[in-house]
Design a protein around this nucleic acid. Sequence first.
DNA 1: TTATTTGCAAAGCGTTTGCATTGGG
DNA 2: CCCAATGCAAACGCTTTGCAAATAA
Lengths: 150, 150
Amino acid sequence: MAKQSAGAASGEGLEALLARRLREKGLRATPDRMRIFRVLARSAEPLTVRAVADRLRDDHLNITTVYRVMELFVALGIVHPVIVGHEAVGYELMAPFRPHHEHFLCAKCGRVVDIYDCPFEEAVAALSRDAGYEVTFHQMEMHGVCQACR
Amino acid sequence: MAKQSAGAASGEGLEALLARRLREKGLRATPDRMRIFRVLARSAEPLTVRAVADRLRDDHLNITTVYRVMELFVALGIVHPVIVGHEAVGYELMAPFRPHHEHFLCAKCGRVVDIYDCPFEEAVAALSRDAGYEVTFHQMEMHGVCQACR
DNA sequence: TTATTTGCAAAGCGTTTGCATTGGG
DNA sequence: CCCAATGCAAACGCTTTGCAAATAA
């Protein structure tokens, strides 16, 4: 079922938003960049550079381009890196391109479960208020055993 | 309140604990492994393989050994990988070798601030109780601007 | 003693870089 | 038209691997 609405507008709108963000910085909304964005938007989990390139092999997308676009997206705050298993770094869209969520990694089946109903907002807000930290982004990573595996 | 005592005994005891954990698995508590452990224990922040090797250059520690020991420590749950800046993967001791804490990354000064007074325990416990996830480890990563930089 | 661990050097491979070409605005 | 972006291939450097020597238990 779709948890959509939360923070992300629908597909079309997000691409327009990305294009605007790029142009604001004097950068171009090229076909390659939009393709890479779409691949990330479709994926249910973080993708490595390699994974993105693989999914765009038919479009003759050079992997060097993926590296460069990914670096750009990180710098622009469009994606952020997350450690997938024990080492591999993957990239994932962040708000407002994708609704905020936390990660739960199951030690048994190895799956990464996204938890959209973030129960930490309150505590993070409190930290901003009381401890003087201005938190603009947060991400919780939890390890353990998922429902299905117990 | 100080969550100290929680799991981490003082230096000496931790090394003994590490040695025991290794031997339990039929592995050896070699000088190199203990040295690497000590370097991690002394560090205030996550260290890359390279950083560990650099700090042990005087001991003629081969970097290949550091790679192998780090891989072992990850497998044994003695350290865990964290993304440091925008990419680099560093390693950090985890409980009970180091008290549990969260990370706050300041966008201005770039420092990584450790937050020991974890305000998320409650919510994590609730998730375990109510949603059926058995959480054995969690780590929050927050980005923003720290007190000093505001 | 003996299986584990380490050092060394070579191989492997993911990532970066330079430069000419293409193409978006 | 101009400068950003891409493709290609070479360069780089991090990480892994094989094997012989060293060593913890």
